[in-house]
Design a protein around this nucleic acid. Structure first.
Length: 229
DNA sequence: CTCCAGGTTATAC
DNA sequence: GTATAACATGGA
């Protein structure tokens, strides 16, 4: 299951001492109270984020649940619940079956990823031992996996703490916190800033920024569109 | 009934 | 290289 954050038992200041601090990050660190980066199973992480593109988190959970209920191994606890199926199980399903779970155009992408992992063509654990950029290159070879999803897998399941996933929310918060009033700020420039400014533990900073802005969306709220009737 | 969502990809300035 | 549209689906 995709979980976003875990509660903390470490000193927030110590954890956040790994990346460059500024006034905005100080606010985020104070607000987040010491969140940690996930350590998900790599296959589950990859599958989950392949399902995530242009989907609301609620929808992703619904799809995840359907796939698990249909083909996933039964868990002893909670009684009656199922885990997400492994790549070998999903690799034997059809695109049509997967579409039946509501994942739309992501179905062939998930199926191909399952087959790549199941066949041994893609060894997720091996990516752990490779430099981040090399591991990212391997992940991006998959259909439906771009820079953002690759960085999520690197950060949340492969221990690459410098990986800095840039999604729509991170785009908003970077603009707000570091480039307010600037013109000609493109997503490309923001990506470059993010990957060069936050350092080897940038992914940890990313989690603070993401959580902070999702819990306080008004900070980056656009002027509401006037709708005529 | 429209709008848009933890993006990616193909195609056109 | 950078901007736009298409892509399926369903909750708001």
């Amino acid at each position: 299951m995709i979980r976003e954050y875990l509660a903390l038992d470490e000193d927030p200041e110590a954890i956040a001492a790994h990346f460059p601090r500024d006034a905005f990050l100080d606010d985020a660190v104070r607000f987040c109270g010491g969140i940690r980066v996930l350590r998900q199973d790599p296959w589950e992480c990859l599958a989950g984020f392949i399902l995530s593109s242009t989907k609301q988190i609620l929808h992703i959970r619904q799809i995840w649940r359907k796939v698990s209920d249909l083909w996933g191994p039964e868990l002893s606890l909670p009684v009656g619940h199922h885990a997400f199926p492994g790549p070998s199980v999903l690799a034997k399903r059809t695109e049509k079956e997967l579409r039946g779970c509501g994942m739309g155009f992501r179905a062939p992408n998930l199926l191909a990823a399952a087959q790549a992992v199941d066949s041994g063509r893609l060894r997720l654990q091996a990516l752990r031992e490779m430099p981040t950029t090399k591991a990212r290159e391997e992940l991006v070879k998959l259909r439906g996996v771009g820079e953002k999803i690759a960085d999520c897998v690197l950060l949340f399941s492969l221990g690459k703490m410098e990986a800095f996933p840039v999604d729509t929310w991170i785009l908003k918060v970077l603009k707000h916190a570091y480039f307010r009033g600037h013109r000609d700020i493109t997503p490309s420039k923001l990506r470059f800033f993010a990957t060069t400014h936050f350092g080897p533990y940038g992914g940890h900073a990313q989690q603070h920024l993401f959580h902070y802005i999702r819990m306080n969306p008004h900070l980056v709220a656009q002027p509401s569109k006037v709708r005529s009737k």
